[in-house]
């Protein structure tokens, strides 16, 4: 009985560690998705603003410099492997949107994995409760017999 409880305890701890790992991964994904959404919003705003308009470009965290929007029909996008390529404005938007979709799909997979782990933990807790109740009943039966 004691060994069984220890085993269940260890299994629950292992599942919780896995859940924590998955949650951290989801956190990282959310940060990337937020950055990509910000890029989309910025690109759309600049396009709406139009060429020749002045914007403030952040330089570090507390400073900004004025710059004029010159060309918005081309966007340089990172394509991985430390390489960035010039894409048409619409293509760049689609590329970023596709990246967001892929990340959201992956996020869903991770969430499902977390739900499955929680279900496993619940099963283990139920198993532990049942073992404990059986043990209790057995003890009571033994006590009655002894009396």
């Amino acid at each position: 009985m004691v060994n069984e409880v220890i085993d269940i305890n260890e299994a629950v701890r292992a599942y919780i560690a896995q859940i924590e790992g998955l949650r951290a991964e989801i956190g990282r994904l959310d940060a990337t998705i937020a950055t990509l959404r910000q890029s989309l919003a910025t690109l759309k705003s600049l396009k709406t603003l139009g060429e020749g308009k002045t914007v403030l470009v952040p330089v570090g965290s507390i400073a900004q410099v004025e710059m004029k929007v010159e060309k918005m029909d081309k966007v340089v996008v990172s394509v991985g492997q430390n390489i960035s390529a010039e894409l048409e404005y619409e293509e760049a938007l689609k590329y970023i949107e596709d990246e967001i979709k892929k990340l959201l799909t992956f996020r869903l997979v991770l969430e499902q994995a977390i739900a499955e782990l929680y279900a496993k933990i619940e099963d283990l807790i139920a198993e532990a409760q049942q073992t404990s109740e059986e043990e209790k009943a057995e003890e009571e039966e033994n006590e009655e017999k002894a009396e």
Binding site: K74, V76, V77, S78, V79, G80, Q81, N82, I83, S84, A85, E86, L87, E88, E91, Y95
Partner: peptide, 26 residues
């Protein structure tokens, strides 16, 4: 997978030039 994806995306670019990140510079 990343390399293949990068190659795929390079094909989409109409420009003859691309940028490579070397240190902190493109």
């Amino acid at each position: 997978k990343e390399c293949k994806k990068a190659l795929e995306e390079l094909e989409k670019s109409s420009s003859d030039e691309v940028y490579k990140l070397v240190g902190g510079l493109f």
